[in-house]
Design a protein around this nucleic acid. Structure first.
Lengths: 204, 204, 204, 204
DNA sequence: TATGAATGAGGGTTCATTCAT
DNA sequence: GATGAATGAACCCTCATTCAT
């Protein structure tokens, strides 16, 4: 393994980022399997072979993108910063934050999710990667339930429902549903209202 | 176009179903592109060429599975049957019904969703196919809001959130999330509670 | 090898002829390789498998057609019948006869010639099959040259030129040349005139 | 469309020629359909996939060979150069020229003619391609007939007979007829004698 | 005898990957 | 380091042939 000087390493990082950005765009457009390495190279303005100087295989591109996707998710510290805030504000802030982050995400998600769903290894890896975040969320919810700030409900299920709702809406976004696309900005407030107030509480 | 006798047609239908079931299993396991026609044939206990006596191409298999997926979804008439029921019961019944149907669905969904997400044509077709169901749901929600049974919220967004949540949970199911897998049965009641009562209504 | 009764044999012969006629039509239309056994069966009004009750393979169909083609050619006796006739009448009669026979031939020729030209074994077989006819023709020409009825020229070359001209015109016919197609009837007289009188003898 | 530098273009042309030469050899030997792309590649000393860097499909190889065949044929200008020459010399020179050209042709012809005869589209294309040459030849013959240099005969038929004779002899050559193969050199003189003097003019 | 569903070997073509320049 | 021509394994699909009915 050669050790690269700092500037050398920087060049390498830049190239890798350039290639990943290109791959993300093309995967999002056409899917992983319908995309050829040549197309990625063209999109990146490079030759076919150059890709292989920075990634061992086409699959490595996917794994690297998956890593990027996961990194955005790794924010257990977020909760700590809002420990003192009341539940409603917390939910609201959390959703706004989430949906703002999603901006960078959407293309990456579209590029990567079909292949994750289709590949058993990636599915397992992804679940594993998500576990700490899930556990942190569960703990935070449990804490607030203990504290009486939220009604007692199953924190594990609640976590899945919250995350699942966001994933599901992203799926509609990827699919091109016009309503979700047009009203993406309104979703955090809508969800906060729904989840906090519920449908039953009329006139609230 | 040759006309087949009834028993002939039955034989054909049975073979098609046999092949589709095999394809659904293998696609769900490995994804569409990682699956060879030979593997589908083996799974169905047939020879490679036999597949092509019943489906024009590998892609036709996918489209046929998509058709099956869609057919389950086309139940706008469901709402009519429950027009007189109060909102909470309606939501509860709707979710139970939905999650029960999902049983047949899950494998089909896993088999087909990655390719739908990855293929622009399929995405568009699927959105189009879903539109009537969305519109029916929106109308039903709007009606109940008018009637004062539900608080006024945007019915289009509400529809997407409900459908999105279910889709998202299915995604977790496909991914193999142990919580969603273990507690699938509990989800309808949990969702009904969440959506109707909300988190805010403490001390229930 | 079963021995068939006469009527049995007749039925078999009729079926074989029916199949060969169908094959000849379809081969002439699409060529041997672009034709499927199923197409031949449909053209004959039979099922795929039935073909194989009468011919061992698709190739056998071709060989049988080649046999039919050859049989038309086997007429060395023709010359004997015209031994006493003078050269000009002989040429004229020969060509008329030939072109009349060609009527039955043309489809068969079109069906079979491309594959003969493309297949080394068939080429050799066909040359061998043609040899006796060539030799008879050479002998007849030589005899007339000896007798002073025709100028001394190489009888082997003359035979090839005569046969080749007819073959070449058949090729144009197969290719669809409009002139040859429209004026097929005029060709025997034209050839007789050309070969006997030549171009040089003006005003004749 | 990328623009290639001169040397680049030269390399491409060389490769294409190399592949076409190999294809021509193998097609001539086994026919188009009995030849696999792999065989062509092996004959050219290349890998299977390399063929497809230079030709879009196996059929494109055939079409390119057909183009080569046609190009040799496009020599209507030839006649102009010999306008002043007397008829006998003209015929003689024309045939010598033709048969000399045929040298390069024979393999190409053998490679391509079976498929042309078997494929309706190619047949039509080939007839169309040949039309100008036929028309030029007809005009030349008509001119000489007008001028009294040749006896009045139908120039369209004459053209077909001349061309057909050559084609027919090529067919015998392809078929491997030993006489035509052994005496190919003698054919131009023989044909000139036959066509100019005819058989009738004894003792000439 | 006739049928046609089933078979599976074979071939054209694509494309991830390598490597000489 | 960058290139892109070359490679060849892999896969979808066709179709000659078989055989149970």
């Amino acid at each position: 393994m050669r050790i690269h000087s700092v500037s050398e390493q920087e060049r390498i990082d830049r190239r890798r980022a350039q290639i990943l950005a290109a791959a993300s765009r093309v995967f999002a457009r056409q899917g992983f399997h319908r995309t050829t390495v040549r197309e990625i190279a063209r999109e990146a303005g490079l030759a076919d072979g150059t890709i292989y100087l920075y990634f061992a295989s086409k699959r490595e591109l996917l794994l690297a993108l998956l890593g990027q996707l996961g990194r955005v998710d790794e924010r257990p510290a977020d909760f700590a910063a809002m420990a003192g805030v009341d539940a409603r504000t917390f939910i609201d802030a959390y959703l706004r934050r989430r949906f703002a982050d999603l901006g960078e995400w959407r293309q990456l998600f579209a590029a990567v999710i079909p292949e994750v769903l289709a590949d058993a290894d990636l599915r397992a890896a992804q679940i594993e990667q998500a576990t700490p975040a899930f556990e942190a969320a569960e703990a935070e919810l449990a804490r607030r339930m203990e504290a009486g700030e939220l009604p007692r409900r199953d924190p594990a299920l609640a976590t899945r429902v919250v995350a699942g709702t966001i994933i599901g809406l992203l799926v509609f976004d990827v699919m091109g549903d016009p309503v979700v696309r047009a009203r993406w900005e309104d979703l955090p407030a809508f969800l906060a209202g729904l989840w906090f107030d519920g449908l039953g509480s009329e006139g609230r």
